[in-house]
């Protein structure tokens, strides 16, 4: 890679202070996203996908502490940037769409106005032009009768429509990176595909990079150039989609593939991953947080540090990879 990546996350660790102890939500994770690239971040619930997204956006709540690492976005040090710079950046260069589309919209504000709010803030336009561009954006995200829908409130629209509004808000200012945090999880299956098509299509048209957070490995391999697999706050594997699909190297990735339904696979052949995520509040977390669930575990797995080996553009964090 000659050009520096659009987003690079290096050695990032995040902890949450809770009443029942410190949760080590992210530990020394690293990955990068190039301009225009679509990267999937995959893992089961609690693996740290959303925390990663919120850390990149600098939207973590007060209980969270970033204990180490560096996040560079387009040459800007995101962890050193002040609140004003971040607010300028968000919505303009870096946007996000969310898991629960309806709850992510202001319930008592017309959706057209909500899109216009973002344009007024970032696009240097007047109220009238912002309103017109909001309607144009609604048309662009495939909402029929956009000028009428602009006057609707979120509760008058379906979940899929609300997610289209969310996409319109996120893409209003043509950001360089879109973070999509499980954008289709709350939607019904037929809507899921159209929403994903819309994100891919608009992203491609704008040359926008996308970070797609999902628990659905199938969706990630279908849509992404590269997949980052997370488990219990670690990045366990990071590889180009084709290579990952052809031969997963981390035992967890392999397990995930085996647990993903696909055509031609009977329900009885879909395996489950034994055990659950370790309690991230424990002080004696093993170096490899998958070791207790792993059938390839060896004695070396209990010895720190966890190896993070990069070979031919793919990273595997395992003592005994496939």
């Amino acid at each position: 890679m000659s050009q520096p990546p659009l987003l690079s996350v290096e050695d990032l660790s995040v902890e949450f202070r809770t009443r029942s102890g410190t949760v080590r939500a992210l530990e020394a994770i690293s990955f990068a996203i190039a301009r225009g690239e679509t990267v999937g971040v995959v893992g089961e619930s609690g693996s740290g996908k959303s925390v990663t997204a919120y850390t990149v956006m600098r939207l973590l709540d007060d209980a969270a502490r970033i204990t180490s690492g560096r996040i560079m976005f387009g040459g800007l040090d995101m962890l050193g940037a002040d609140a004003g710079t971040l607010a300028e950046l968000r919505g303009r260069e870096l946007s996000m769409i969310f898991q629960n589309p309806r709850a992510s919209l202001n319930p008592i504000r017309r959706v057209g106005q909500q899109i216009a709010d973002v344009l007024l803030r970032h696009a240097n336009v007047g109220a009238k032009e912002a309103g017109e561009r909001a309607v144009a954006l609604l048309a662009e995200v495939g909402i029929p009768e956009p000028s009428r829908r602009a006057k609707a409130y979120p509760f008058e629209l379906s979940g899929g429509m609300c997610q289209r509004i969310g996409i319109a808000i996120a893409l209003a200012c043509r950001p360089a990176l879109l973070i999509a945090d499980e954008p289709t999880t709350g939607l019904d299956v037929t809507t899921q595909a159209t929403i994903m098509d819309l994100v891919s299509e608009l992203g491609r048209a704008r040359g926008m990079a996308t970070m797609l957070i999902t628990h659905d490995l199938g969706l990630a391999t279908e849509r992404c150039d590269r997949v980052v697999v997370m488990h219990a706050g670690h990045v366990v594997e990071d590889a180009p989609t084709a290579a990952l699909f052809a031969a997963p190297r981390h035992p967890y990735t392999a397990r995930l593939f085996a647990a993903t339904p696909r055509p031609g696979l009977a329900l009885s052949e879909i395996s489950t991953i034994p055990g659950g995520l370790p309690d991230l509040r424990r002080d004696d977390l093993p170096p490899c947080r998958f070791s207790t669930r792993c059938d390839r575990r060896r004695d070396a797995c209990d010895a720190p540090p966890l190896p993070r080996v990069t070979h031919q553009g793919r990273l595997v964090a395992c003592h005994n990879p496939l």
Binding site: M57, L86, G91, M96, A103, N106, V118
Partner: peptide
């Protein structure tokens, strides 16, 4: 602490 406020912050709206 609701989702739409976080979304509004993610859209960079002013304080």
């Amino acid at each position: 602490s609701s989702d739409f406020i976080r979304a509004a912050r993610a859209a960079g709206l002013s304080g």
